[in-house]
């Protein structure tokens, strides 16, 4: 692959003019988005706002009809080692015959290259990643036997083992209990404090200010983006949620 000149290299994830449509309906329209390095960002918006599609389109899993995306100045194909993705839990085949450690090891397959098998060094790295998310005791469990929060942590361990600088997570807090949610947030904040960039598709407005320092409000278009303190306003939230704005007080939802 020929080296492309760097474009916006000081930005972890730079998206410009991105448009995605299913059949004739745009699900993402003219997205311009910059996530600076070292933040923990939430992408928030109503159902059908295109939050998951935005992550998938940024990674090339969904084909956009227009626009471009750069990670640290490079197209995904040249930056794949610096970017990790944690899919929605519902999209995974939990009955697949694999243990937690098997799943984490798969995060290393890309850099192993063709024909090379994961060996002792790779297994040690996988176990270290499981340890980091408090799942060391479950390394040999089949993934379907784990609770929702444990499954989520295994997938975060898979992102960890990739040693990515940017981790994109699709609804990691969906369907886990409050205690697990706090544990996951603590893990993600720890990663942010190491200098990594975290981008989370999030569904709960109430916790945005407690968990995140960067906010993107999305409803097919980007309504607002920036530091949480500036973006989290009643006007912006009403513009994002439209008819559902009745749920939100005049000064935005109550602080958690």
């Amino acid at each position: 692959m020929p080296d492309t000149p760097l474009h916006e290299p000081h930005i972890a994830c730079h998206i410009e003019d991105l448009t995605v449509s299913y059949r004739d309906r745009p699900v993402l329209w003219d997205i311009d988005l910059d996530v600076p390095p070292g933040v923990m960002a939430a992408i928030v918006g109503p159902n059908g706002a295109g939050k998951s599609t935005l992550l998938k389109a940024a990674l090339g899993l969904v084909r956009p009809v227009a626009g471009h995306v750069r990670f640290f100045g490079l197209p995904y194909g040249q930056a794949r080692r610096r970017v990790a993705y944690v899919p929605q839990r519902a999209s995974v085949d939990w009955d697949f015959p694999a243990t937690a450690r098997d799943v984490v090891l798969m995060g290393l397959y890309g850099r192993l290259g063709w024909l090379r098998r994961p060996g002792r060094a790779e297994r040690a790295r996988a176990d270290a990643a499981l340890e980091a998310v408090g799942m060391a005791d479950f390394a040999r469990r089949q993934i379907g036997e784990l609770s929702g929060g444990q499954q989520q942590r295994v997938f975060i361990a898979r992102a960890l083992v990739q040693e990515a600088d940017l981790i994109l997570l699709d609804e990691p807090m969906a369907g886990v209990d409050a205690l697990t949610e706090r544990a996951i947030v603590a893990i993600l904040k720890g990663l942010r404090d190491q200098g990594r960039t975290i981008v989370v598709v999030h569904h709960d407005l109430q916790t945005v200010r407690a968990y995140f320092d960067w906010l993107v409000l999305l409803n097919v278009r980007v309504i607002a983006q920036g530091p949480v303190a500036q973006v989290y306003t009643g006007d912006n939230l009403r513009a994002t949620y439209g008819g559902q704005a009745a749920l939100i007080g005049p000064e935005g939802p109550a602080a958690p």
């Binding site: 899919p87 798969m106 890309g110």
Partner: peptide, 20 residues
């Protein structure tokens, strides 16, 4: 190509993201 078959059977998206 054992590990490629494994990752594709489990999670084709992850395989694609890894460059498989």
């Amino acid at each position: 190509w054992w590990k490629e078959c494994q990752i594709v059977a489990f999670d084709p998206d992850l395989a694609r993201l890894q460059g498989v």
